[in-house]
Computed example of a mutant assay.
Amino acid sequence: MRLTLLFAAFVVLGLAFESAVPHLVSFRALIPNLIIILVVDLGLRHHGVVPAMLAFAIGYATDALAGSHPGLNAFMMTMVFLVSYEISTRLMVTNALVGATVVFFGVIATALATVAFADGFSALSDSGSMLGGLTLKAAVSAIVAPFIFSMLAASKRMTGLPVRAKRE
């Protein structure tokens, strides 16, 4: 229950940030994708059914607020969670560098998959113009990710939740 409440609070703050800041900053690539950072942390450090359902709920909340195609963000966040979970089970240690790398590729994969599902796979053939901004957004998200991970870790310590996966 504490895990759900903690991530719900961070998701509300993340969605509010991602909704409000584009009105202040004209270059959208400088806004990190906080939702993917939260899902990656969930996949790397929390295993089980409840974290998987939380990842789906985070994507569903994103769909409810800003999704153009219902269920697409829920599907993509669940996939990012599953990839993060698989990476955490295969590696001995999951540190901030691993998390930032997963965030980087998660932002790129999510954006490309969203374009492919929304506009058809033919839209990816002329996606060269968006790759520069997408790479910048992924890099900004990867740079911000360790700070968000540390904020989550401090919040988990304050609420009595485990900071790391049980096997670490």
Results as ranks from 00 to 15, higher is better:
L134Y: 02
F7G: 02
K156E: 15
I148A: 15
A16C: 01
M92Q: 11
S68R: 14
H46G: 02
S68V: 13
A142P: 01
A165W: 14
N33K: 00
L97A: 15
G120Q: 05
S122D: 15
G14W: 06
A116Q: 04
R90H: 13
F81G: 00
N33P: 00
T62C: 09
S88I: 09
L72M: 11
V102L: 14
L112G: 04
S150L: 15
K156F: 10
I35E: 09
D119L: 15
A123G: 08
L24N: 04
V98Q: 07
A111W: 07
F147Q: 02
K166H: 13
K137N: 07
G160N: 12
F7K: 06
L15W: 01
L152T: 00
A66F: 04
G14Q: 05
A96M: 11
G59E: 02
L3Q: 07
V11T: 09
V107P: 04
M130V: 10
A118W: 11
T4V: 15
R167G: 12
L13G: 05
V40Y: 08
E18H: 00
L38Q: 02
A74G: 03
G132C: 02
F105C: 04
L30P: 03
E18M: 01
F105P: 01
S68C: 11
T135H: 09
I143P: 07
K156R: 15
F121G: 11
R90F: 14
G160D: 11
L124C: 10
V102C: 11
F27H: 07
L6Q: 03
A118R: 14
T110R: 15
A111I: 05
T110Y: 13
G14T: 00
S127W: 11
A9W: 05
G106F: 10
A29H: 07
M76A: 06
V144S: 10
D63T: 03
L152K: 07
L91Y: 07
F10D: 01
V21P: 03
L5K: 10
A74K: 03
P70D: 02
L131C: 07
P51Q: 08
N73C: 00
G120W: 08
Y85L: 15
F121S: 11
G120A: 07
I148M: 14
V93E: 10
N73H: 05
L54Q: 08
E18Q: 06
G14S: 12
F121V: 13
T135S: 13
A145I: 04
A74T: 01
A96Q: 12
T94K: 10
I35K: 10
L82Y: 13
V12F: 13
A142Y: 01
G71S: 01
L72G: 01
N73W: 06
S26P: 09
R164C: 10
T159W: 14
V144H: 11
I31Y: 00
